[in-house]
Design a protein around this nucleic acid. Structure first.
Lengths: 100, 100
DNA sequence: ACTATAGGCAAGTGCTTACTTGCCTATCAA
DNA sequence: TTGATAGGCAAGTAAGCACTTGCCTATAGT
């Protein structure tokens, strides 16, 4: 749960994708590919981006909706809100389950 | 910079170490090893913990001070404070440098 | 001096992961 | 129906990472 979230954030390309979705939510896979290539000079294949989006979706950071042949990707920042609380607020520690 | 931080947080054992340092700051390597083993049932070698601490230190999350043959590890939560701001506050996006 | 304790260094191993390549399905426009 | 566009699936590769093993240094107690 928390593991998926931190693992998703561990990759720089995925964080850049979150940046792009922050700037404009509801983008398609191809739109994200184009932006990564144009704005960030990332020479990355469509499948690689697709796999990154799957990781972000598994972490709950991205939600998708299908419309015809398009699939739109929306950002969900809710999981990000309290991920650092367990260390920033020493009064109410929320120890994680031992890593499995 | 931000990459080191997120990479450091990506591992569950390292997050548990941060939990332990939150509970009691200024622990030695052996003390941390003992706690991981006792409280969390982690069968992990001293060197593994040492390497985790090095990663946390590179990320700025842990600071160390030597005293005689002891080396104490202190938690520094400052880097954690604003890591999600770039996505939580859409008005002032802080786009990361392209991943190197 | 000898021994125990606290820690560091470096090479090796096996699993994970980011990425590619190739092919396949589905929707829309002509 | 044909062709183009948007996306998915699966196997393979190469690099990264967590962890171990073995040995070495330094401080402290006897």
């Amino acid at each position: 749960m928390a593991d998926d979230l931190f693992k998703a954030l561990a990759d720089g390309t995925r964080r850049t994708i979150l940046d792009e979705l922050t700037e404009k939510s509801g983008q398609t896979l191809f739109e994200i590919c184009a932006r990564l290539s144009m704005k960030h000079g990332l020479g990355i294949s469509r499948q690689a981006v697709s796999q990154h989006l799957a990781v972000l979706e598994a972490a709950g950071l991205v939600e998708t909706r299908r419309e015809g042949r398009y699939k739109f990707h929306d950002l969900n920042v809710a999981p990000l809100r309290h991920i650092t609380e367990r260390w920033l607020d020493p009064h109410t520690p929320t120890p994680e389950k031992d890593p499995s």
